[in-house]
Computed example of a mutant assay.
Amino acid sequence: MTIRLLLADDQALVRGALASLLDLEPDMQVVAEVGRGDEVIPAAKEHLPDVALLDVEMPGGDGIATTRELRAAMPGVKVVIVTTFGRPGFLRRALLAGATGFVVKDTPARQLADAVRRVHSGLRVVDPTLAADSLAVGDSPLTTREAEVLRAAREGGSVSDIARVVFLSEGTVRNHLSSAIGKTDARNRADAVRVAEENGWL
């Protein structure tokens, strides 16, 4: 039985290398390759993959949001997140979104192929180092609103700019920023964004 694969990564060289490696496996066939998150579901509906390998950071929808949408649209398709960003918070968010595999891009080809087989058979596969880091870091201390405000703050705008983006008053934005800075032990807003991003909380 051949495992049909869909690859989604905005870096064409990485996507091509993954496709070449996985196509060498006798029981695997790459049936679709896309470079954007919003191309995943149309490609999946057209090519009917068994397993989708998704990058985390892509234009048109990140891999975690795309995982949630793909699992809702096509529950039979298993998802493996393959990412450069081995951040603990990403792992938890990906699993909650419905991913059953989470590996980093420098995983050896043989291990990646084995991970695909195991996910296809119904098992969960998680990079062991990342799993340990995730347990050590724990869950995000940020509320949904605090995370939303920090995501808006990444652009570096003023409090009023952020307030317009998230549809909150400037006073509420200041409160959320202050709380997020405290929870991340950060020096300022930019530092809070950095800490939250490094831990995969945004």
Results as ranks from 00 to 15, higher is better:
L96P: 01
G61P: 06
K45V: 07
L53Y: 03
R15M: 04
E69T: 03
A94N: 04
A44Q: 04
A65R: 15
M28I: 06
D27S: 09
V126A: 01
E33V: 00
V34D: 03
F90W: 05
A44F: 13
D62A: 09
A99N: 04
L96C: 05
P108V: 02
E39V: 12
T67Y: 11
A113C: 13
I41K: 07
R36D: 12
G98L: 10
D55W: 07
V104F: 04
T107Q: 13
L53I: 15
P49E: 07
T100S: 14
D27E: 14
G61K: 11
L112D: 01
I64R: 01
A131L: 14
D114L: 10
D27Q: 12
D62L: 11
P108I: 04
T100G: 08
A19R: 15
I81V: 13
T129M: 09
G122H: 12
A44C: 10
M28A: 03
D38C: 12
V126F: 01
T129C: 01
K78L: 02
V14I: 15
E25L: 02
L70E: 08
I64F: 00
V119A: 09
V40Q: 13
K45H: 07
V56W: 03
A109K: 12
L112Y: 03
S121T: 03
I64G: 00
A113P: 08
G63K: 08
V116K: 13
G101N: 08
P49C: 09
V14M: 11
R36G: 09
V14W: 07
R71W: 13
V30M: 05
V126K: 05
P49I: 05
V119Q: 10
A65F: 10
R124V: 02
A109Q: 13
V51Y: 07
D50H: 14
L95F: 03
D38R: 14
V56L: 15
L112S: 06
H47C: 07
P42Y: 11
D114P: 04
L70M: 11
G60M: 06
L95Y: 03
R92L: 09
M58P: 01
G35V: 04
V79D: 04
H120N: 14
L53A: 05
L48Y: 07
A99T: 01
T107F: 01
R15D: 00
A44H: 08
V30S: 03
L24V: 06
M58E: 06
D9M: 06
G89Q: 02
K78R: 15
A44G: 06
H120Y: 14
G76N: 11
K105L: 12
A73N: 09
A97C: 05
L24R: 15
L18C: 10
A131D: 13
I81R: 07
G86I: 14
L123W: 06
V80M: 05
I81A: 09
E69H: 11
K105Y: 02
A94E: 11
G63S: 08
V77R: 15
R110Y: 06
P108L: 04
L22K: 15
E39L: 12
V119M: 09
L54R: 09
L91A: 04
I41E: 12
A8E: 03
Q29F: 06
V104G: 01
L13E: 14
D114V: 00
V80D: 00
F85E: 03
A109C: 03
I81M: 11
R93G: 02
L24T: 13
I64K: 02
A109D: 12
H47V: 01
V104H: 03
L18N: 04
D10F: 10
F85P: 00
P128A: 12
L91W: 02
T67A: 12
A113V: 13
E33G: 02
V30Y: 05
